[in-house]
Design a binder for these strands. Structure first.
Length: 565
RNA sequence: CGGGGUGUAGCGCAGUCUGGUCAGCGCACCUGUUUUGGGUACAGGGGGCCGUAGGUUCAAAUCCUAUCACCCCGACCA
């Protein structure tokens, strides 16, 4: 490729709409251009890097006997209604109608389409196992798109779906896919960690996320080193603790607390630690009120709560609803003498409390020294997020540590939920009809590219891992007016092209300084400089982007170095 | 969805409070000279009816109203 011919608009200044480094550099180095919020054009270099990642993905997946296909982006609502996700998926599913007033959505993922495809064609166990995948543009109308390619609304994703005659075979393939994913991200030269995850809207049982460790990551990873557990913060589960024996010698005290409604203020005023306070939150679970108790220093994990309640829609009750139900404004709600028609559900941690501070269900009053026995708690469950630095529930001596990560891959065991809803079944060896067992496996291609930059850059620009760099090397001609230099560079370039190397030659009629700056910004791993060294000694200079180490060599040596990379 | 902010040339910004020599700066771009190993220097030049639509006024980038777009924070701590 000739730079003089390349559409690569680089910028000196940081675009004002970008504040994470990958987003800034992708724009500055001419890889992407924003069209609308969360919607980007991949410019030639951006596309080139994506293709390199895709190629790695294709090569590794084919080792797992996965076959590539391409499903439509536009999906009729009927399939989504069958799977019940037309209602469950929410606003992220972009819906619209055609001229016949038929409803459609833009596919955010393709379980429905692929399961339907299989339902229509699967007959016998002899056709299994089977794995199909595609690398296509998905659309999710994100609540808040941000960070460029890291959380766009339109994005390129590889999604694979596997089909099996038994759970055992699904388990076997899931493990295989985990290995394939590890190989893919290793080949992309990323530092990542595999963590236990929640399966979210996709549904299913086991799932694991592949997290690229980076400080700008949107996900929190919780680790207990001693027990070798690494988990998405959302999916960290606590075992049921032993019930503590309440302090029977203490007396309930009522306190007048006008204007004091926050845990922080209360614990200060009444000399009660935040972890001795209990807060009560009213949720609407499919429009049924539920009261949830959690310790003052804890946060409710709504994913867990939703699962526990088996709710389709879950939200906090509005102030108005609370007033209707309890007859009280927020701030003084408490579980003692709470309206009996609303079930009280408490987080496991409440079990370990010997006394507590709660709202009095009376304006401007709180109680202290309440014990669990005085409350009519109907259920205990694991409902909260872990807290950074708290003791591990698995190993006493160990604490929980937190890291940030970018979720670049996610694998799930779906089981037969989609198969049942979309009637994908087959005849087994005993001629019995069985629903097919499914797994699904995603990789965010654009997100992987962004994650690579988050992990590898400096003040000068991107430092691409060799495996996914847009070019192996760039040949820089320091002066286009010097014919000797041009000839030498062109000859080298010609040899590279003949050897099918992916090389850029910077033949622009501009000063050498600009060429160096652009090469650094774009992040090409190796710069080959044809300049004064050549005029003096007929040698080329080569410089590694990552280390800035400069060396000299003749054409033979350059070819050797290039073969290595 | 709530709060905050920003829309002026391809990019980054000043000008808006206090309406009138206000269509401006830097980078980028074009021409010429210069320079030729880390965004050379000088000279000249092209490009925007100031997000959009109304309104107020003799006069609007500037004031008012509406609207659109984009960005940030939050969207559970009772």
């Amino acid at each position: 490729m000739r730079f003089s011919n390349l559409f690569c608009p680089t910028l000196k200044e940081v675009p004002k709409d970008a504040d994470v480094i990958s987003h800034q550099l992708l724009q500055r180095a001419g890889f992407i251009k924003k069209l609308a919020s969360g919607i980007y054009t991949l410019l030639p270099l951006g596309l080139k890097v994506c293709k390199k990642v895709e190629q790695i993905v294709r090569e590794e997946l084919s080792k797992g006997n996965a076959q590539e296909l391409m499903m439509p982006m536009v999906c009729p609502s009927s399939l989504w209604k069958k799977s019940e996700r037309w209602d469950k998926y929410g606003k992220e599913l972009l819906r619209f109608k055609d001229r016949q007033e038929n409803e459609y959505c833009l596919g955010p993922t393709h379980e429905e389409v692929v399961t339907d495809l299989i339902a229509q064609n699967l007959k016998s166990y002899k056709q299994l196992p089977l794995c199909l995948y595609q690398i296509t543009t998905k659309f999710r109308d994100e609540v808040r798109p941000r960070f460029g390619l890291m959380r766009g609304r339109e994005f390129v994703m590889k999604d694979a779906y596997s089909f099996h005659e038994s759970k055992e075979d699904l388990n076997r393939y899931y493990e295989k896919m985990r290995d394939i994913y590890e190989k893919i991200f290793k080949r992309c030269q990323l530092k990542f960690s595999v963590v236990t995850a929640d399966s979210g809207t996709i549904g299913g049982s086991d799932s694991a996320e592949f997290m690229v460790l980076a400080k700008n990551g949107e996900d929190a990873i919780v680790t207990c080193k001693a027990s070798n557990i690494s988990c998405n913060r959302e999916a960290f589960s606590f075992p049921e603790p032993q019930t503590a024996i309440s302090d029977k010698n203490i007396k309930v005290t009522k306190h007048h607390t006008p204007g004091i409604t926050s845990i922080e203020e209360l614990s200060k005023k009444l000399q009660y630690a935040a972890n001795e306070c209990v807060k009560l939150l009213v949720y609407m679970s499919d429009e049924q009120a539920k009261a949830v108790l959690v310790r003052g220093d804890h946060q409710i994990n709504e994913i867990k709560l939703k699962k526990f309640l088996k709710a389709t829609h879950l939200r906090l009750a509005t102030d108005k609803e609370i007033k209707n139900i309890v007859g009280l404004d927020c701030g003084y709600l408490g579980p003692y003498k709470f309206p009996q028609n609303i079930p009280l559900i408490a987080d496991f941690s409440i079990k370990t409390m010997t006394k507590m501070l709660i709202g009095a269900n009376e304006k401007e009053y709180h109680y202290t020294n309440i014990t669990r026995e005085q409350l009519n708690i109907q259920h205990y469950a694991d409902l909260r997020f872990p807290v950074e630095g708290e003791n591990s529930p698995f190993k006493k001596e160990s604490t929980l540590t937190f890291h940030r990560g970018i979720e670049v891959g996610h694998i799930f065991k779906l089981g037969s939920i989609y198969a049942q809803k979309l009637h994908a079944s087959f005849l087994d060896k005993e001629a019995k009809q069985q629903p097919v067992q499914m797994g699904c496996y995603g990789i965010g291609i654009g997100r992987t590219v962004a994650a690579a930059i988050e992990q590898s850059h400096d003040e000068k620009g991107i430092i691409w891992p060799k495996a996914i760099a847009p070019f192996q090397a760039v040949i820089i001609i320091t002066s286009m007016k010097n014919e000797t230099l041009c000839q030498a560079a062109e000859e080298l370039y010609k040899i590279c092209i003949e050897k099918k190397m992916d090389i850029l030659i910077d033949d622009r009629h501009i000063s050498a300084g600009v060429k160096f700056k652009d090469a650094d910004l774009i992040g090409i791993p190796l710069q080959i400089i044809v300049g004064k060294g050549f005029l003096e000694k007929q040698t080329f200079e080569y410089c590694y982007r990552e280390t800035s180490i400069k060396k000299h060599g003749d054409q033979k040596e350059i070819m050797r170095v290039l073969q290595e990379t």
